[in-house]
Amino acid sequence: MTLTADDIIAIHQLVALHGHLVDGRELHRLDELFTPDVVYDVTAMGQGVVRGIDEFRALSESFADDARNPIGHHVTNIVVTEGADGGATVRSKGIGVLRDGRTGSVVYDDRVSRTPHGWRITARQVSRAGR
Results as ranks from 00 to 15, higher is better:
88 A>P: 05
39 V>G: 03
106 V>G: 11
80 V>G: 01
88 A>D: 01
4 T>P: 04
19 G>F: 01
68 R>S: 13
62 S>R: 14
50 V>Q: 05
18 H>C: 14
33 L>H: 03
49 V>M: 01
84 A>F: 10
90 V>M: 05
25 R>Q: 15
23 D>R: 02
99 R>D: 10
26 E>C: 08
106 V>Y: 08
100 D>Y: 06
108 Y>M: 06
46 G>I: 03
122 T>L: 00
40 Y>M: 09
24 G>C: 14
122 T>R: 05
47 Q>H: 15
72 G>E: 13
17 L>K: 02
67 A>S: 12
78 I>Y: 00
32 E>K: 09
58 A>C: 06
51 R>I: 13
51 R>Q: 14
79 V>W: 03
7 D>R: 01
90 V>D: 07
115 T>F: 04
121 I>F: 00
114 R>V: 11
120 R>W: 03
6 D>G: 13
70 P>A: 01
111 R>C: 09
55 E>P: 06
31 D>F: 08
73 H>E: 10
127 S>V: 12
4 T>Q: 04
9 I>Y: 05
80 V>S: 00
108 Y>H: 01
129 A>L: 12
129 A>K: 11
99 R>G: 12
91 R>P: 04
1 M>A: 12
82 E>F: 09
29 R>Q: 15
23 D>P: 03
128 R>I: 14
124 R>H: 07
52 G>T: 09
55 E>W: 08
61 E>G: 08
40 Y>I: 12
53 I>L: 11
128 R>D: 11
119 W>M: 03
122 T>P: 02
85 D>H: 07
78 I>V: 15
124 R>Y: 05
33 L>Y: 04
102 R>K: 11
38 V>Y: 07
82 E>P: 12
103 T>G: 05
111 R>P: 01
125 Q>T: 15
86 G>A: 01
33 L>M: 10
104 G>Y: 10
124 R>F: 03
47 Q>D: 15
128 R>H: 10
32 E>T: 08
46 G>N: 06
